[in-house]
Structure formats: structure tokens, C-alpha cells
Computed example of a mutant assay.
Amino acid sequence: MTRASLDKQPQDVATMFDGVAERYDLTNDVLSLGQSRLWRKEVARAVDARPAQKVLDLAAGTATSSLPFSRTGAYVVPCDFSLGMLRVGKGRHPWMPFTAGDATRLPFKDDTFDAVTISFGLRNVQDTDAALRDLYRVTKPGGRVVICEFSHPTWAPLRTVYTEYLMRALPPVARSVSSNPDAYVYLAESIRAWPDQPALAARLQQAGWSKVGWRDLTGGIVAMHRGTKPGA
């Protein structure tokens, strides 16, 4: 198995990510032209983790995305369904409580976390709506969700250039740096098939989240959605 298909069978997606785990962070930096670091900083600001708060970082991979939350003094749980990613992450950050889990059936009790976040992972879940509902379930009343995901550029010329990059430039670049370049063909296809910013906001509202909004990053190549679980 070298790549997943757009029906996103969980075992296929997990196996694909197992195959890219060792060089995943490097590949992301290269393919995003360094923008992935900027996006992580914006997510950290939006999550606004505080000392002693509990934060769930879903689709955390090797926990590169979890480190900014941990540095604030928050208790961060990096969770992923790729065991290969978790093994690499645990080797790098042995003190972190890595947890294997499916986004649609999270292994946590109701009302556990002050904040939940997922970056560039919701697109790979087979049932997006079930994942949004389960994130809602494990969040405390008054808690927050932050979702960072590839989206749709809002400026037509940028959208054209970006689409060309995804389908023409990304695969050869991936071949030069990734341990499993075929996986990045799936990446490009899944980005093109993903809902736009208003459509994802509507799905968050349908899952129960309130005060839903989004902010475009890098011209809408990435969008950061936010929401709050009602309650004190």
C-alpha cells in the first residue's frame, strides 16, 4: 500500500502515513515552502493554551504541532491513528503522552479537554461529521476547537497557480524529499476535493459548535476555523 484513495478507508490512510513518518516534517517544510511553520504559530495563538489546561492535539503525527502547547505549561495529548507516526514521535519526545486513536471514536471521556485542535488531518478522516461531533463530545463546556486545514484560495489568479502547483509541481518535489512520494499524489487530490471555508463552517455548526468563524492564511491556501462549545 503506497497511498490512500479518496474513499479514505482508515487502515489505508494509516498505512500510508506509517510510510512517510520518518521524513514527514521535513517533507512538509519543503512542500509548503516554509509556510508550515508560520501556520503552526497561528494555530498556537488561536488555541491560546494556558498552564494546567488540557489540550488534545488530534492527528498530531510526530507531535511537532503539539510542542508549542506543551511549552505554555498545558497538558497536551498528541493523538493519531498512525502507529508509525506515534513511534517516531515517541522516539523524539519520550515525555509526551502519545495516544493512538480514531478521530471518529476518540478514547477519552466526555468533557475532558479545555481545547481541541487538528491541523491538516481532518481531511484524511473518513467521516468528517462524526469527527467534529466526537471532538465536541470530549471538549469541556466553554471549551474551544481550532481546525487548520488546506482550503480554497480566495483570489482567482492564486487559485489557478496553486492548482497547477498541486497537480504538476508537488509530485516531482515530493519524489526528491519524501520516503513515500506516491502518498503526496493523494495529498493533492484530497486538497482539491475538500470543502471550501463556508462549507466547513456549516459542518462545525451542525456538529453543535457555536461562535464559528474562520481566518484565511496564505491567501486561503489554508484556513483556520474556530468554534466554542456552549456552556459555562
Rank of each mutant, 00 (worst) to 15 (best):
P94N: 06
L106M: 06
P230G: 14
G142W: 09
E164T: 04
R87N: 10
W209F: 04
D80T: 02
F17A: 04
C79T: 08
S5M: 11
G101H: 08
D29T: 13
E42C: 06
S65V: 06
T128V: 12
K8I: 01
G73H: 01
S36I: 06
T104V: 13
R159F: 00
R87Y: 03
I118G: 02
V138M: 13
A156K: 08
R45W: 13
I147R: 02
K41M: 10
A156Y: 07
R203D: 11
P68S: 09
N180F: 04
V20W: 08
Q197C: 06
Q53R: 04
S178L: 05
S82F: 15
C148Q: 07
G143V: 04
D196T: 09
F120W: 06
A174I: 03
H152M: 04
A130D: 00
A188Q: 01
T160M: 09
L132T: 05
Y24P: 02
M224K: 15
F150V: 13
A174Q: 11
G73E: 05
M16H: 10
A49S: 11
K211S: 15
T72F: 11
D114F: 05
T218D: 15
Y162D: 00
D12H: 10
P97S: 09
R226I: 08
K109Y: 09
G227Q: 01
E42R: 15
P107H: 12
S65R: 00
K229Q: 13
D80S: 05
G227Y: 08
P153E: 10
L166H: 02
G61I: 00
G220V: 07
M224A: 06
A46V: 13
L217N: 03
G34N: 14
Q11G: 07
E42W: 02
N180Q: 10
M85S: 09
T112Q: 15
T2Y: 07
F98Q: 04
Q9K: 14
W95H: 13
R45H: 11
P157T: 00
Y75N: 12
A193V: 04
V47F: 08
A52G: 13
P51H: 10
D182A: 10
K8Q: 12
R40K: 09
A174L: 11
W39F: 07
R105K: 06
S190R: 10
P153G: 15
A115C: 13
Y136W: 08
N124E: 06
T139L: 14
D48H: 15
A201T: 02
R23M: 09
R226P: 00
A188P: 05
Q205S: 05
M85V: 08
R92A: 12
P153M: 03
V116Y: 04
P195Q: 02
A115G: 11
A131D: 14
V173I: 10
V20C: 12
Q206Y: 00
R87H: 07
H93P: 05
K54F: 15
I147D: 12
K54E: 14
T27K: 01
M85F: 06
F69K: 03
L58N: 01
A156G: 03
T72C: 11
L217Q: 04
V30C: 06
D48G: 11
Q53H: 04
G91S: 14
S179F: 00
L67G: 08
D134Q: 04
Q197E: 14
T218H: 01
